[in-house]
Design a protein around this nucleic acid. Structure first.
Lengths: 333, 333
DNA sequence: CCGCCCGGTGTGAGCGCTAACAACCCGCCT
DNA sequence: AGGCGGGTTGTTAGCGCTCACACCGGGCGG
């Protein structure tokens, strides 16, 4: 910086002012400084800057299994939005999620002195661990619970489940079965609730819930059970809590000779890129992960700038129904 | 740090020594310092440290479409390995890859003064853009080309393709068709070469190559073409360059009434979690992405520690054939 | 018995930047 | 004409840390 100042014939402070877009610099001076910067290929040292401003311009992200389509997409959106806003992102990706691992992750990010934190904390326990940070550093939860007074950005899971269930009822199905995600996942819970609420509103008794762990294998296991129910005509429509499980379910039904959608209709959740090419193409609920990422960053930056809000912020992103070939009116109609 | 020093009754320099595991500190002194650190909940300021050491302890990663299973898994492995080694990771995830976007990404990471760089640069052009950095900062390419004298960690794509093609020939198929990835992707090129080499070694004429863009849709399009060839008995086996395209292919064949594996055998590449639950379960080539991540970090850290190597390093990870239900001997045998 | 060496510790400087303040120039008002 | 205010620039003082070096004391060899 001293070199730049010398070449431009100004003081290092003026260089600093140019770099920080300070208004009170004469245009001619600014140009000379910029030229000198260009000439030297100068880059300011962000460590030194962070040292004095006490801002690292880095946002921490705690995520879980970024190999899955959902978290990976959210992360992608997060990263784009942060970069656009001039922030860096530091990610900790967890294999297993519990109070201990989340605690370690937060420690690691704290060591980095991040300016703010985004927690993709879709599990009850993780959400609790993160909310302990409240007040220390700005935090935004993605897909988190409604509790704890933590600002949250999330897709409206309940609404998505309603969309799915209504679609099936609208086709004439008497009832809708449900293959749920793990009970300690907030998203699984929201989807189960939306399904339940819709059936109850229609005065329909709830079929048993089959619980899975999001994996195709779990869907397959659930599928064998549902194939039995389908053969006796008890099950003609299923709302599956994610597309991967729907894939396993499709496979189990195929093996059992149950036709989709003629015998059983299926709706998934997520709209992974593969869903369109399942056999048959899957009707599902699309989540706009990129939008979630953008809104999360926007909220976090706002929190960093203006300090915490008196009321708890909750931003909701709307899901959308994508109708493909895995749903049809029941055969008996 | 001054506070810690005061409480422990030592100088700030001794505190620094304890923090850096300097050997010449008396155990009693060390304990006092550690106790003081504990008491105050002290955390050292990494910006200040970076300012004087000129090391940020941060590694940059340039990746492409981290939404895909392969890159996402590699990233996950990278992140784990870096964290274990005490490094932070800064990721730039690109939507489109070309000289300009890669250049911007590298700029962004340079601004952060990363200690080293990992480039997931599976495209010819990207690899070229990255190799321009050579010498400036340590760089390791993941899945990069063999050119440019850049250290590379990669899965042996050619070997994987050989495994797939041999498997099909071993089952008695006269020839093997190939649905390739985009020509400018190094992985697509490696797989195509492995397939070609194997057929040539067996003295078999090459069927036409169908080129796709990795998407299920491209596989679907390719599948319609191959369905025609299958009906006339010209195609009985296909090696598809990734699992997503294989899914689309499966779907197209299903629609055309071509049975898999009775009429046509299919082998994919990647072993995505869904592959096991395709209809039918897909025979494919598994890549150990986590291992690639670990080896990349290990190599990069070594480069950072000991400086550049005289000879070009190339670390290869072996792929594995996973046999499932999408392959069988040809009907005519 | 002296001096040297080495383990353990303290002192001072400075990494590159920004914040606060001082200094200057200029036009304009009194 | 003198002074005042605002725009523009320079000067100084750290931010919290590590490095280089000085220092101190005790064991050991000459």
């Amino acid at each position: 910086m001293a070199d730049v100042a010398r070449i431009a014939g100004v003081s290092h402070q003026t260089v600093s002012r140019v770099l920080n877009h300070h208004p009170n610099v004469r245009p001619g001076t600014r140009d000379r400084v910029l030229a000198a910067i260009e000439e030297l290929g100068y880059r300011r040292n962000l460590s030194a800057r962070a040292l004095v401003t006490r801002r690292t311009n880095t946002l921490g992200v705690v995520a879980f299994d970024t190999t899955l389509y959902g978290p990976a997409s959210t992360l992608f959106g997060l990263e784009q939005a942060a970069r656009d806003a001039g922030y860096f992102i530091s990610i900790v990706s967890l294999k297993t999620i519990n109070r201990k691992t989340v605690g370690e992750a937060l420690d690691y990010l704290a060591a980095q002195a991040v300016d703010g934190l985004i927690a993709i904390a879709p599990q009850v326990e993780a959400a609790a661990a993160v909310s302990a940070l409240q007040g220390h550093v700005p935090v935004v939860a993605v897909e988190g619970g409604e509790a704890d007074g933590m600002p949250v950005v999330a897709v409206d899971q309940t609404r998505g489940a309603e969309l799915a269930t209504r679609h099936l009822l609208g086709l004439g199905h008497r009832t809708v079965w449900h293959v749920a995600g793990p009970a300690d996942w907030l998203e699984a819970e929201g989807r189960r609730r939306g399904w339940q609420r819709t059936l109850e509103a229609a005065g329909i008794a709830l079929p048993p819930v089959v619980e899975g762990d999001w994996s195709p294998r779990a869907g397959y296991t659930a599928g064998r059970r549902i194939a039995n129910a389908a053969r006796t005509g008890r099950a003609t429509a299923v709302f599956v809590s994610n597309d991967q499980m729907a894939l396993g379910l499709l496979r189990a039904l195929h093996e059992a000779g149950v036709r989709v959608p003629q015998d059983v209709s299926i709706v998934g959740f997520d709209d992974i890129p593969e869903a369109e090419f399942f056999t048959p193409p899957l009707t599902t609920i699309r989540q706009d992960f990129a939008e979630v990422g953008r809104k999360s960053i926007a909220l976090l930056l706002d929190l960093i700038e203006t300090g915490p809000r008196p009321e708890t912020e909750r931003i909701v992103v709307a899901p959308a129904l994508v109708v493909r070939a895995s749903t049809a009116p029941p055969a008996t109609t």
